[in-house]
């Protein structure tokens, strides 16, 4: 599918700087997360996005504030890219009251209603029907928003994925399903889990437009999104994107970076296409970046990340009373409502 370039209001340099900043922030933030995890400040399952930043960053950079996003447990980078503050994310990881989910969700369940960030979800494939439902709601109201649903490539072998895409294709819903194909579901290579090797083709089964995208190139991601968004906004049509990427860390914090299921040599090969390096090189070549400016950016980001840590560390534990809050809500109004 040929990508149409959208004219950009911002100059390329300004846009590129923003994209670089977003990706660097995610990278440095998660490096800090790994540190905090090692110190026991963060517990439970914790899945890093390092290596995949161009996917979330490219996608979010194309969305409007009133669009929706739903994702998996690998959600820190996407939450930051959508605009959640490093403070609220870090405080959530620390399990503190000021966290975006009040300390009740943790790493896998980042939510922000103000940003239409409908959560990180922990059941592989389980959130995919939610996206179809949001698409249904958008069309029900006659809106022109879209919803992006991120998932790992292992989710496409799950029944929820197929049921969801069938309904989206059948009913024509403005959903953009983004498979982040990082080649592995934990330790299982895609070729050992999926009967076909080009997962985007699964869209054909459900009459859903589909494409394969280089996920290490933030611009390729943006271009693919431009097409998908147009389909969603103008025709209520879904898109399935297989965005090829690679995770540079283990599956979660308890998993070695390489080992039985992938070699160090493979990892090193893929790390040559670090999405941040690729963007830096491009900006350097265009004269949009130099060492001094990069150093300034790194310095500023280091301060922001340290501030997030300090904020999270100082944030109180959720009060004991919070234990029994948010199980149910008080039902408030029963007056007639017109959509």
């Amino acid at each position: 599918m040929a990508a149409k370039k959208k004219p950009d209001v911002k100059s390329n340099a300004a846009l590129n700087t923003e994209l670089l900043h977003a990706m660097l922030l995610q990278r440095r933030f998660e490096e800090k997360v790994a540190e905090a995890y090692a110190l026991g400040k963060i517990g439970g399952f914790c899945h890093l996005y390092i290596g995949q930043e161009a996917v979330g960053t490219g996608v979010m950079s194309m969305l409007r504030p009133d669009d929706y996003v739903v994702t998996t447990y690998r959600d820190h980078g996407q939450a930051l890219a959508r605009g959640m503050t490093p403070r609220s994310v870090m405080a959530e990881l620390f399990g503190r009251a000021d966290g975006c989910s009040g300390g009740k969700g943790g790493s896998m369940h980042l939510f922000d209603r103000n940003l239409n960030f409908l959560g990180g979800h922990g059941i592989v494939g389980g959130h995919v029907p939610l996206a179809t439902g949001v698409g249904f709601a958008i069309k029900y109201r006659g809106g022109d928003q879209c919803i992006v649903c991120f998932m790992g490539e292992a989710a496409v072998n799950n029944g929820a994925f197929h049921e969801s895409l069938n309904m989206a294709g059948l009913w024509k819903l403005p959903v953009i399903y983004v498979i982040e194909n990082n080649k592995y579901g934990m330790g299982t290579a895609e070729s050992r889990a999926s009967s076909i090797q080009h997962m985007y083709k699964r869209g054909d089964t459900y009459s859903i437009a589909n494409a394969e995208v280089d996920g290490q190139d933030v611009f390729a991601v943006r271009d693919a999104l431009a097409d998908a968004i147009e389909r969603a906004r103008t025709n209520y049509e879904s898109t399935l994107l297989e965005i090829r990427t690679y995770r540079f860390m283990g599956h979660s914090m308890s998993d070695a970076v390489s080992g039985t299921y992938r070699t160090k040599a493979e990892l090193e090969e893929y790390m040559k296409r670090d999405p941040i390096t690729l963007l830096k090189n491009k900006m350097n070549a265009a004269g949009e970046l130099n060492d001094a400016r990069l150093a300034d950016m790194e310095k500023e980001i280091a301060a922001v990340v340290q501030d997030a840590w300090d904020f999270a560390d100082a944030s109180p534990e959720p009060p004991p009373g919070a234990l029994y809050e948010d199980v149910l809500v008080e039902t408030t109004s029963d007056s007639p409502v017109r959509v």
């Binding site: 029907p129 939610l130 439902g133 958008i138 029900y140 049921e163 969801s164 069938n166 309904m167």
Partner: peptide, 28 residues
């Protein structure tokens, strides 16, 4: 047909569609 919707035989799928729709303000 927008408010009374026949689905495929896909209980997991349409239950989840309901959950998603409820998250953004409908009452399925």
């Amino acid at each position: 047909e927008m408010r009374v919707v026949d689905t495929p035989i896909t209980e997991l799928g349409f239950a989840g569609v309901g959950v998603g729709a409820a998250m953004v303000g409908l009452r399925p």
